[in-house]
């Protein structure tokens, strides 16, 4: 029952966040000086043609009407029409979304797989040389500019050593197993860029939480009962230290998506981020708007899943 209440509250909050995201973009696009009609109308058009275009895109109606129409269309999955390509925005973006999900998903997974043991190492060797190195690495990693990491990896492993392709997401004319191998090879460098960017926050947070947990009484009890230190760390302390670290996933998701936009730009990776980069050059506002709404929705849903997982893992959260 408590879990149901907890979950429904979270879902409500999710919907609120989405509504906020959608409304902000709508009013930002309509109220800022960059006239959408100017972006699509060429200077050679006369006034009548301009009005015709405004009417075609529904831009001549009152703001409130446009807003309600926009929300209604959005609920039906309609994100508008691309100014430049004259195809539905949802079509442009949905074929790119899987690539972004693959990139960010694998980056998050790899970050956790590498980051958790590093955090444990730092916490159990507190104050030692290893701890220092991990801490400094964490701070520097968080301070890096995403394109810097991407370019450095592209140089070293793509151009210089030639181990991995420097752009794209898949080779032409590959099928079956070969296609998977090709996707994996194209994924390595962009994925690693995001891991470098993300991992510091996870390692440092887990380190702090684990050090706190190891000082708790239940760990002293476990040690007093003669449990080996390895068991105290992995069975007793880590479980509790992981809980607050879960919240970090939610906080970092927005950053991860932002990083993906820059990474996809560098590696010409055909995801939503690359679509954003291309649309900036062409001032294709419906695509920019749709991309933000879509990415926000992805982040919000991922956040909801993390929250529910947290609620399942920790009964105290449900009660609160």
């Amino acid at each position: 029952m408590a879990l149901l209440r907890f979950t429904s509250l979270r879902v409500l909050r999710c919907l609120l966040t989405l509504w906020f995201a959608v409304s902000v973009t709508f009013f930002v696009v309509r109220l800022l000086p960059g006239d959408p009609a100017l972006a699509i109308a060429s200077p050679t058009m006369d006034e009548a043609q301009r009005q015709q275009i405004l009417a075609d895109f529904g831009l001549d109606r009152p703001l409130a009407v446009q807003y309600v129409t926009y929300l209604g269309e959005l609920l039906q999955g309609n994100l508008g029409v691309s100014f430049r390509q004259s195809v539905p925005v949802s079509e442009v973006l949905l074929e790119r979304l899987p690539w972004t999900l693959i990139l960010t998903g694998s980056a998050l997974l790899l970050t956790l797989v590498i980051g958790l043991p590093l955090g444990v190492l730092a916490a159990t060797h507190r104050g030692g040389a290893l701890d220092r190195v991990i801490q400094v690495g964490g701070v520097v990693g968080q301070s890096l500019f995403v394109p810097t990491v991407g370019i450095a990896l592209l140089y070293t492993f793509g151009l210089w050593l030639g181990w991995f392709p420097i752009g794209g997401a898949i080779d032409d004319d590959v099928y079956g197993l070969e296609a998977y191998a090709s996707i994996a090879r194209h994924l390595v460098l962009p994925c690693l860029s995001l891991v470098v960017l993300q991992i510091g926050a996870y390692v440092l947070t887990l380190r702090t939480n684990l050090i706190d947990a190891l000082g708790e009484e239940y760990c002293t009890v476990a040690r007093a009962k003669g449990a080996p230190e390895r068991r105290v760390v992995w069975k007793h302390a880590l479980r509790n230290a992981l809980l607050p670290t879960t919240t970090l996933v939610g906080l970092q998701l927005g950053l991860l998506v932002g990083g993906a936009v820059l990474t996809e730009t560098i590696f010409a990776y055909p995801g939503v981020g690359r679509a954003i980069y291309e649309s900036v050059g062409q001032l294709d506002f419906p695509v920019l708007q749709g991309a933000f709404v879509l990415l926000a929705a992805a982040v919000v849903v991922a956040n909801l899943l993390t929250d529910i997982a947290y609620g399942l893992l920790d009964p105290r959260v449900r009660a609160a």
Binding site: L16, T17, F20, A21, V24, T25, V28, V29, L32, P33, G34, G250, L251, L253, G254, V257, G258, V261, L262, I276, V280, L283, F285, L288, Q289, A291, F292, L295, A296, V299, V300, N303
Partner: peptide
Amino acid sequence: VMLSLPVLPLMILVAALA
């Protein structure tokens, strides 16, 4: 709400418009 949104795409949209 604002902390949970992907900020960079939003900044891009606003900067491109303004």
